[in-house]
Design a protein around this nucleic acid. Structure first.
Lengths: 155, 155
DNA sequence: GTGGAAATTGACAGTCATTTTCAATTAGGA
DNA sequence: TCCTAATTGAAAATGACTGTCAATTTCCAC
């Protein structure tokens, strides 16, 4: 499954097209990034790689993530933390995020109605929208249940 | 007008309630912050104050902005810049932002339909929303017009 | 397969916004 | 007015990230 992931080919093409080289480090980093399938920070990705290939430096992880962004294979996101997380979804998929404040789960969603309503509101205010960012913070189903349980016990 | 701004009283009350003291520095900083009426960074606020009261340090500006946040009189916002901006609107007004990428104008808006649609989508995904953040980036009316003009000239 | 120019790497130092430390100063209740 | 706890500002520390640079590696031309 991972081997047939077309993103590896897209990244290789991007490198070739840009006159850049394929290296062991880049292959490892990109593989670990896609394998994680989550919004990782550079540090988290670095830690995952350390266990398999301790020679790779944090600096190279940062540089490779920047290349992935240029290739349209990752998007930088700030979720109110001190550091940047990298979204492994294709850059041309415009989606929004639900972030659980308790377990940290990040769920993605897309809603055409929401999108068009936003466009309509912006247009009515004279704005032409080119990018957007919507994050909803709260509690996922499991964590909301726990919260209720605790509240009930406390009461 | 500025003198009758109830926010000064709210801040004084917050300080008293918290066992903190009213100082010349805090009065100046809070006054300059509300007088600006815009989303300022700590550095921008510091620069405005320097012209009138060069004795006040940047550190004190940071500390006072943190107090304003605790008092519910300011909200930290990240608009994709390296630094944090502080929103002088009451923390309990849940509004969204339109940011012009050309002139930097930040326009606020509130839309009940948008709000309820978001709630509905989150609920259908099992999420309970407590906070949200929506930013629409693009061009305001004036800048969009300029952009069109330039495009036409280029063509 | 070899040579060599150009890209890459990793350690280290630098940057930049923000926070912490700490000795000196100040507010404001007793 | 006194006294203690809060406050201040300068300097140092922090933490994420980026630039520098000598040593290494890739990969195209031959």
């Amino acid at each position: 499954m991972a081997e047939s992931d077309p993103r590896f080919q897209r990244f290789a093409d991007f490198l070739a097209r840009s006159g850049l080289k394929t290296t062991r480090q880049r292959e490892r980093i990109v593989h670990a990034f896609f394998a994680a399938g989550r919004h990782l920070s550079a540090e988290e990705l670095y830690n995952r790689i350390q266990t398999q290939d301790p020679g790779i430096g944090l600096v190279t992880v940062y540089r490779t993530l920047k290349l992935l962004r240029q290739a349209g294979l990752a998007t930088e996101r700030q979720f109110g933390e001190a550091y940047t997380r990298f979204d492994p979804n294709p850059a041309d998929w415009p989606h929004d995020h639900l972030i659980c404040k308790r377990c940290g789960k990040i769920q993605e969603f897309e809603d055409a109605g929401l999108h068009s309503l936003r466009e309509k509101i912006a247009r009515s205010l004279g704005f032409t929208v080119t990018e957007h960012k919507l994050e909803l913070y709260g509690f996922c189903r499991d964590c909301a249940r726990l919260g209720k349980g605790r509240a009930a016990r406390t009461a």
